[in-house]
Amino acid sequence: MSILLTLGAILILTGGICDLFGAIGLLKFPNFYVRLHAATVGTIGGAAVPLFGVTLLALGTDIPNKEAIAGASLITGMIILLVAPAGATALAYAAHKARIIEWKPKTDQLKEARK
């Protein structure tokens, strides 16, 4: 019982730390493409992992309807795991296609391939 509770609490704490660093990264990084990586820290480490933590935490307590809370957060976490990369890819694709972002990459092999 208490093992699940502790594990869930640790995962939620991890999520908070990841959110903090993701936010700092969003402020600190210079352009869209680099900020996207900081945003990934926020979505996976900061949204999906704490939801799995909520699942474990709910299973570890003895509140009524704990299975419903655990199941809902598990499914939400899975949907975020599937949707977040699709959203990030769509954003990056659109930004690259529109060519509105000025940056100085070390190498841009997509631009070479699309010529």
Binding site: Y33, H37, V41, A84, A92
Partner: peptide, 12 residues
């Protein structure tokens, strides 16, 4: 894409 540090931009 889900591992921070790498994002897929396009696929062919």
């Amino acid at each position: 894409t889900n591992t921070p540090g790498t994002v897929v931009v396009d696929v062919d």
